[in-house]
């Protein structure tokens, strides 16, 4: 029982570490790194699903009968590219946010937004 599912439990631990980083950490780059860890652990879950004991890589070679399942590999090739696309877009957003807010900490940005909101409301009262 333990050996059979041990693999999946470690993958779940990795997923949870990634999710924790995304939610708990304020730094925007740290969040993106947490997101990458979360997605990479999903890939590891898919690939460990496809492995057969004694099976080799799904490249047809004579004299080998048992192959691992090729379909999850195809799905993960797509998912990796999706992951890098999201990271690249997120990083370009972080660069623009740094330029306009001059900070990449979530609290400071939220603070600047709230102050701006308060000042517009105040301006509206006396207008």
């Amino acid at each position: 029982m333990l050996i059979g599912l041990f693999n999946d439990w470690i993958v779940v631990v990795l997923m949870m570490i990634g999710l924790y980083i995304v939610i708990a950490h304020g730094n925007l780059i740290k969040k993106l790194i947490g997101l990458t860890i979360f997605q990479t652990s999903v890939f590891i879950f898919y690939i460990s699903m496809a492995k057969i004991d004694g099976g080799t890589a799904p490249i047809l070679a004579d004299g080998i009968t048992q192959y691992s399942n090729p379909l999850p590999h195809v799905l993960i090739l797509t998912a990796i590219v999706v992951g890098i696309a999201t990271t690249a877009l997120g990083l370009s957003l972080v660069v623009r946010i740094k330029e306009s807010y001059n900070s990449i900490e979530e609290e400071e940005i939220q603070q600047q937004d709230n102050d701006e909101q308060l000042s517009t409301n105040k301006a509206e009262e006396n207008a």
């Binding site: 995304v22 979360f38 879950f45 877009l89 997120g90 306009s100």
Partner: peptide, 26 residues
């Protein structure tokens, strides 16, 4: 400039949602 911050939050929430769907499909 709030558009950048709103888009970043949407990116984080949207990617978590999409990855949940990926886990479900898996």
């Amino acid at each position: 400039r709030q558009a950048l911050w709103a888009s970043y939050q949407y990116l984080i929430m949207g990617t978590i949602g999409a990855t949940f769907i990926l886990i479900g499909i898996g």
